[in-house]
């Protein structure tokens, strides 16, 4: 079974308590329709599991298939420099059909980012490198498409429709 490499660490964007018994990692592509479909499901999974779950998002843009995916990932990472990664992640998925540069700046404005700083930061190598490092970690971890999920470090190949996914995660709680 494929193992998450490297494990979740301080460079990751994490929602939830570090001590939560369940750790769900998604490798996602902002322009991938399946990831767009997964977005509200993950929100409900988080609501349902509450303090038992922490959620991590890593970038896996298929740039040739999805021409705006890489830029969208960079924009979310750039928002992260102003501690608004998740706000940007959410607004991008909620507006998945428009991910051109102009739209990305519009989203940056509407979540209240300092736009001058955003414009400057988005040019930095560090944000593109973060996306590339995420992608490569996904390849090494056996990601074969998006979204790919890892639960407590192990690749989850099962169904991720809401009810089944929540049920599975809850069943893992009793195993732990």
């Amino acid at each position: 079974m494929s193992q998450l490499k490297p494990p979740v660490n301080s460079k990751d964007h994490i929602q939830g308590k570090a001590t939560a018994p369940l750790e769900l990692v998604e490798y996602g592509d902002y322009q991938c329709l399946h990831c767009g479909h997964a977005y509200p499901i993950i929100k409900n999974v988080q609501r349902s599991l509450g303090a038992d779950l922490k959620f991590v998002f890593r970038n896996f843009p298929l740039a040739e298939a999805h021409p705006d995916a890489f830029n969208a990932a960079v924009a979310a990472e750039t928002a992260g420099l102003q501690h608004k990664f998740w706000e940007m992640h959410d607004i991008i998925f909620e507006n998945q059909e428009a991910l051109d540069s102009e739209s990305l700046f519009l989203y940056a404005r509407s979540i209240g980012l300092d736009l001058e700083r955003f414009k400057n930061d988005i040019q930095k190598n560090t944000v593109t490198e973060k996306v590339e490092i995420d992608f490569e970690s996904g390849v090494r971890s056996g990601v074969n498409g998006t979204p790919s999920f890892f639960i407590n470090g192990k690749k989850y190949n099962g169904d991720w429709e809401e009810d089944v996914f929540i049920q599975y995660l809850k069943s893992q709680l009793t195993v732990i």
Partner: peptide, 13 residues
């Protein structure tokens, strides 16, 4: 298609 799309992205690696 998914497999080859993935390899297309991993070419640089």
């Amino acid at each position: 298609s998914d497999e080859l799309a993935l390899y297309n992205e991993t070419m640089k690696i």
